[in-house]
Every structure is written in C-alpha cells, then in structure tokens.
Design a protein around this nucleic acid. Structure first.
Lengths: 151, 151
DNA sequence: TTTCATGTAACTATTGTTGTTACATATGGC
DNA sequence: GCCATATGTAACAACAATAGTTACATGAAA
C-alpha cells in the first residue's frame, strides 16, 4: 500500500498556517507541501469536520485555524483523519477456526496492540504548538549559522 | 496497500509442519493457510535462504523444518522476510529543505521508531516453539470442552 | 457580474502483497 | 529410461488504500 502521509501533511500545513496567521488557500498549501490542491481540500476537510480549522469560499477565502494549537494533540489529528490503520503488517485471516492460526493471531495482535498503544500515547503528549516551537528553535539555529558564515 | 501477512503465514506454516514432523508440500500448506501454493513457495523460499527450512523436489519432496524452533524468534522471521516496512503511516517527504517539515518529520520519526523498537523487542522474546506450546494448550482446552459436552 | 475559492465526483497513478498461469527443472519410483 | 510429482521462477492480473488529475457545481466578495 502507499503509505498514508496525511498526518505529516496536516501538521506541516497547520504550522505554516500558524506562522502566517491569515487564511491560506488550498493552492498555497499545496505548493507548500508539494501536494495537489484537491488533495489538500480533501484532507483539510477532515480537520474542518473536527472543528480544528474552518474554510471560506470566494475572495479572501481559504483555510483558517479555529482552535488553540497548544490543545491540539497529534492523537486528535490522527482521530480527525479517521484513525487510519497504523500497521502495514498484520494477520492473514482475522477470524479463523484453526487453533494454530488463532494462537498466532493472538500473539501477533498482542504485540501490535502494545506498539500501537505506545505510539498513540506519544501522540497524546505532543501538541501542534510543541512542534511549532521546535520549528522556531531550528530557525534560530539556522540564522545563527548563517550569521557566523557571513561575518 | 494490501497488508503484509507473511509473518502470520509463515508462523502458521511452521507450527503445522512441527505438528506433522514430516515434509509438507506447498499445496498442502496452501490448503492449510487458505493461500496459493506459488505464494507459499515464494514466501517459504525466504525462510530457506535464512536456513530455517529446507525444500526438496520430486516424490517425497516438500518443506521440512531445518532448525530448532525454540531458537527461532519472530524477530528472526521478520528479518528473513526482508524486514518489511512495519508502518502504513509515514512522512510525506523524507528529505526536505523546509524547516517546518523537518521538525514534523523528526517528531513523527521519533514516535514511530520508538513503537517499532518495542514491537521488535517483543518479537525477540517470542519463539515459534512458544507459540506451538500455546496451540497445544488451546487443543487441551478444546478437548476438555468437547468431553464435558458429550459426557 | 465576474472572479476566486471551496466542495465533490469520477476517474487514473502508485505501490506493495497476493493470486494465477505457464513452464522449466530436479527427483524418486516403476 | 520414463513418468508422476514437487519445487523454482517469470510474467502478469487483482486488490486496496492514498495520492493525483480533470471537470464542474456552488458560494462569496470585489
């Protein structure tokens, strides 16, 4: 399967929107992400349903942030995207009468469930604002490097 | 993408082979797994490369276990299968000049790496023999249930 | 009223496993 | 030696989910 990069995309989009603090069109976001404007609308539409952003049509329209990004966690974004399947690996037949397969499934499911729980727990503890702050730090560093080179 | 169920498949196959303690043909295994014989050959071929099983052609041919299953861990099987990608979710652009995307990628990669490490650690601690023992337990239980019903 | 933006539908492209067909090759039994 | 049986592969279609594309309807502001 093609890997699902929508969480990565919406994070990227939200932070750019936060830096701008003004409406951004799907085309602008698409250019930013290197993605198609229709795909942007499709994906951002899920965030609108979750009331994380709003959208307006016509002139001066586009996408706007509609909630405090310090309260929006990666977990919430994952949920807003419909909790897509996390693993590319899984059992062959989820329901089976074969005892062997049942045992195998139980063991694998346990391991996968544990890993997914850990991932979602990490997602709960990271807000979009945290990531935005990380970006600000990187920008400061880059400016410092540039300054020292040109001095 | 279709989810990768090869780990589940080879575990199922190995345990059936262990119960039989005789060569099993690809067709027999395929029937067992509800899978195609060619796919069985393809996947089991990877285990042969890893010297976990052997195969023979012609009459009395088929697949045989070639190592002590109490020393074969799920991690080894995962490696034998070529360490397939575990996550169906990932970053959009792995390498990018955009600082925003770099920060997002770093945060997501960290969380994914942690979850994958946990999963592989679990895989290291489970042997095929462990699962086979689990199957034996289930069979005992089923027999007990059956006995009490027919008494 | 025109222009710009979102909202959607209906496709194709992509990317990996899985399924299928076909055929080459080796092996054991007669 | 011949034949049935099994693996070994190649080549391609099927599948499943996101991503990309084209086309057009709809709403809002200049």
């Amino acid at each position: 399967m093609k890997r699902d990069s929508r969480l990565s995309s919406v994070l990227h989009a939200l932070i750019h929107m936060a830096e701008r603090d003004a409406a951004m069109t799907s085309t602008e976001l698409g250019t930013c992400l290197g993605a198609n404007a229709v795909v942007v609308r499709r994906t951002m539409g899920l965030l609108r349903t979750a009331k994380i952003v709003t959208s307006d049509r016509g002139h001066t329209g586009g996408w706007r942030i509609a909630s405090d990004l310090s309260t929006v966690t990666l977990r919430q974004l994952h949920e807003a995207l419909g909790e897509p399947i996390v693993f590319a690996v899984g059992n062959r037949n989820e329901r089976t009468k074969c005892l062997v397969e049942q045992s195998v499934n139980a063991a694998l499911d346990g391991a996968f469930a544990e890993a997914e729980a850990l991932l979602l727990k990490r997602f709960e503890n990271i807000t979009v604002a945290d990531l935005a702050a990380g970006v600000a730090k990187r920008q400061t560093k880059r400016r410092a490097r540039h300054k020292s080179r040109t001095r």
